[in-house]
Simulated assay, not measured.
Amino acid sequence: MDFPYPFAELTPSSRPHPPVVAKVTHHSIELHWDLERKAKRQGPQEQWAQFSIEEEDPKTHTYGIIYTGYATKHVVEGLEPRTLYRFRLKVSSPSGEYAYSPVASASTTREPISCEHLHRAVNVNDEDLLVGILQGGSVKVDVPNKLGLTALMVAAQKGYTRLVKILISNGTDVNLRNGSGKDSLMLACYAGHLDVVKYLRGHGASWKARDLGGCTALHWAADGGHCHVVEWMLKDGCEVDATDAGSGWTPLMRVSAVSGNQRVASLLIEAGANVNVKDKGGKTPLMVAVLNNHEELVQLLLDKGADASVRNEFGKGVLEMARVFDRQKVVSLLEGRRKQMPKKSAVPSVR
């Protein structure tokens, strides 16, 4: 067998050629070698020259074998982006003689822009990075992250108004929803970012949108407790008594159940919220406030005309509910109110 290299008479000029760098990506380098002799192999494989590719360790400057065999190409994978790598080829004869090629160097390419880069730019509020990614055109602006949130949803939730404007100018859909049905407007309302709320409204976001539970942006704003946002939303025309799909709760009912925020409740009532509305179980905001021991809200609702005589589907009134759940302060408040109510005088019948 005529081996490709005269091992016994090895000189610098007769050393194997370095491996040829072919395709390079951000995580792989493809190497080729001995291309001119590939077609001349004869006889059984054990009589062929064997090839090894060795990679240099940049810290110790020693070489380790990453491939051994009879092929004439190898793809080195699992590499770091934008990194220089050095390789050499070792050619061995069946008798054990071997020769090394000069070193071949190659650098991996820059990591391609992905949705992770897009969301990373939004998370750290990096305007320049976001603009560069979007101008590159390789990432869709509405691709969701692992939590199902678009970049706009994240920016709206965090209150990054400049990023919201950049994303909208690059074609993001303001009405997309996450897995629970919330859109960017709902997230901004709950978080209290009025500038973002105004901008989203000016670019097609709707007050009529509902999440999977049937809640509107006003429900979420009421939960968030940000009065300046609630006040602007009401002036902008959102429906004050929209009911959710589960319990039939209005935003005022949500306040009664969740936060007990008196200031938010006042804004809702001033905008026309029905203080005596009933949910699907027959409960009023006053009943819900009593059950959740929101004493100041109970006082407000009574001042605004809540009917303490209304009973639920089981025939229970607010005073009975307060006693059953041992809401002592609320019981005292309700009893005091009842004593203050003028007694109805008997009206003589007309014959």
Rank of each mutant, 00 (worst) to 15 (best):
V264F: 02
L163N: 04
H294Y: 12
E231D: 15
M253K: 03
L218E: 12
A99P: 09
L147K: 14
K278H: 11
A306G: 04
R311D: 00
S138T: 14
T172A: 13
S93F: 03
G248D: 11
A104M: 08
L89K: 03
A257D: 12
K339D: 12
D244P: 07
E239W: 08
D128N: 12
S309D: 14
Q299L: 15
H119R: 02
T25M: 02
D128G: 07
H193I: 02
C227R: 15
L301G: 05
H27I: 00
T284K: 06
V318K: 01
V21L: 03
R41G: 09
L187K: 02
F325G: 05
G132M: 09
R15L: 15
Q50V: 08
E296Y: 10
L300A: 05
Q299E: 15
G237D: 07
S93G: 05
L152P: 05
H74V: 05
A188G: 03
L187H: 06
L130F: 07
P81C: 02
G69M: 12
V318D: 03
H119N: 11
A289M: 03
A222R: 04
G202E: 13
D183W: 00
G159S: 05
A188L: 01
E9C: 10
A106K: 03
F87S: 02
V75Q: 13
D223F: 10
D173S: 09
A8L: 14
Y70E: 15
D211G: 02
L134H: 04
Y70Q: 14
A242E: 12
R210N: 03
V258K: 15
S169V: 04
C189L: 04
H226N: 11
D279I: 01
I168V: 15
D211C: 00
I133E: 06
H294P: 03
S332E: 15
S107P: 02
A209M: 09
E231T: 08
E320D: 11
I113Y: 09
K198Q: 14
A242H: 09
E320I: 01
V324P: 04
K146Q: 14
R37Q: 11
P6H: 12
R263Q: 06
L334V: 12
C215T: 10
H27S: 05
D57E: 13
L212V: 07
Q135F: 05
N276L: 04
T68W: 00
H74K: 08
P102S: 15
